[in-house]
């Protein structure tokens, strides 16, 4: 157990260093030693923010998927298959159009609210489905997301914002520089709170009946989970854009080995999400160097392949 912790820590460390090293401008390490201001600027204004943003986003999205899967009680849900990402986009758009001068805080708040309302609606929708329809849930989620997305696009079209909105469709870390991404750190407290309340979310995942007979305040715990998810998702979409599959693949992979007891599996899920996103980002930066493939695309491809593999492997 300790050995495997160590292996993962080493892997994460190597990936972090790689991520710091790669970039359109070569980072002169000797310059760092000699205290060259230019080298330090590259490191602190671009590379480090990008690395931190990747770690926080990966961990945050994976944990969001994990919590949603427990709340909806379905292994196939994540922010992308419950309309969460689309709702956040719609929220940002609403904020941009109705309050164009508002700061990022207001934008965040509106995106968060839209995200929360949409997830409550989705939950109400899903609870009307027969319990055995596990595959129907993500299908309905995708359709629901499609509707939200269509509303957003129609709205953007009328206000001539369609092009800039396409930017958020695809997550991209190349724009992450000091001063542009800090709202992302809101997902750090959300992550910590998720861990603090991990036991509650596991009990939520046992179903309303068992949860209630264990004395859990079920509605309050579900609401708390949805708020934490909404915070992370909207902070992510605002600062780096929509990234699919991380929240879907990682919790399922980790559950195979570490089970569904969140107290035990949540740190692994967070770590796994961070590693997956780092790998996707490094790939995206190397494939057409010195240009970049947006991470929304690489994560979609890598995550999609992993997910297919997982489905086929489980079928065996």
């Amino acid at each position: 157990m300790i050995r495997s912790h160590l292996n993962w820590a080493v892997a994460l460390g190597v990936l972090c260093v790689l991520s710091l090293l790669i970039g359109a401008r070569a980072l002169p390490w000797s310059g760092l030693w000699q205290g060259s201001p230019e080298a330090w600027l590259t490191l602190t204004a671009s590379r480090l923010p990008r690395l931190l943003a990747l770690l926080v986003t990966g961990a945050g999205l994976a944990v969001c998927g994990l919590i949603l899967q427990h709340i909806v009680r379905n292994r196939f849900v994540e922010p992308a298959t419950t309309g969460g990402l689309d709702a956040a986009k719609l929220g940002i758009l609403l904020a941009l159009i109705s309050l164009p001068d508002a700061g990022v805080g207001v934008r965040m708040f509106i995106a968060l609210s839209v995200c929360l309302v949409s997830s409550l609606l989705f939950l109400a929708l899903v609870r009307r489905l027969p319990a055995q329809q596990t595959v129907l849930v993500p299908v309905i989620g995708l359709m629901y997301g499609g509707v939200l997305s269509a509303v957003a696009e129609g709205y953007a079209y009328r206000h001539n914002l369609l092009q800039s909105m396409q930017g958020w469709l695809l997550g991209d870390f190349s724009k992450v520089v000091q001063g542009s991404y800090e709202v992302l750190y809101l997902s750090v407290p959300a992550l910590l709170l998720s861990y603090l309340f991990a036991q509650r979310f596991t009990v939520v995942g046992m179903g309303e009946g068992i949860a209630t007979s264990l004395g859990l305040n079920y509605p309050a715990s579900v609401a708390l989970g949805l708020v934490l998810v909404a915070v992370t998702v909207s902070a992510t979409v605002i600062s780096v854009g929509a990234i699919p599959f991380v929240g879907l693949v990682i919790p399922n992979l980790i559950a195979l080995r570490h089970g569904d007891n969140l107290r035990r599996s949540l740190p692994w899920v967070a770590l796994g999400g961070a590693v997956l996103l780092l790998v996707c980002d490094i790939l995206g930066r190397l494939l057409i160097y010195p240009f970049e493939v947006p991470i929304g695309l690489t994560a979609g491809i890598v995550g999609g392949a992993l997910f297919l593999g997982l489905l086929l492997w489980q079928r065996r």
Binding site: H70, R73, T202, G205, M206, G207, G209, I210, T212, S213, A255, G259, D260, N261, R264
Partner: peptide, 16 residues
């Protein structure tokens, strides 16, 4: 209260 086992679909160890 104990309801039917079908309700549970989490991957937990018996001990957990």
């Amino acid at each position: 209260t104990l309801r039917q086992a079908t309700e549970l679909n989490l991957r937990l160890r018996v001990e957990e």
